[in-house]
Design a protein around this nucleic acid. Structure first.
Length: 82
DNA sequence: CGTATGACGTGCA
DNA sequence: GTGCACGCCATAC
């Protein structure tokens, strides 16, 4: 179980309509100061099973997954309407 | 093994 | 509220 695995696990556990900040994910993953690595890992592991679009900045703004997940914003809205 | 990078966060001006 | 700089961690090369 590596930090990356923990991150994926935590992100995958994010319920629909809910969003977590990179820091929060890092905390849940067990490395409160590794929010940097969280984004790095997710970026290199753009796994479709990982709702990275649910991981946002602590500012409430979307992260850099805009690479092709900009459409996910609509997904978030849809999930919000659960 | 060491260096560089990155989808961040916080502090200060 | 905005902009700049620093610090932190894990991964990739």
């Amino acid at each position: 179980m590596t930090f990356a695995d923990n991150v994926f696990k935590v992100v995958a556990k994010i319920p629909r309509g809910k969003t977590l900040s990179y820091k929060k994910v890092a905390v849940l993953a067990g490395r409160p100061k590794a929010y940097r690595a969280v984004g790095n890992i997710l970026n290199k592991n753009h796994d479709p099973k990982i709702p990275c679009h649910r991981v946002i900045r602590c500012n409430g703004q979307l992260g850099g997954f805009n690479r092709g997940a900009a459409q996910k914003k609509k997904l978030l809205k849809q999930e919000k309407t659960i």
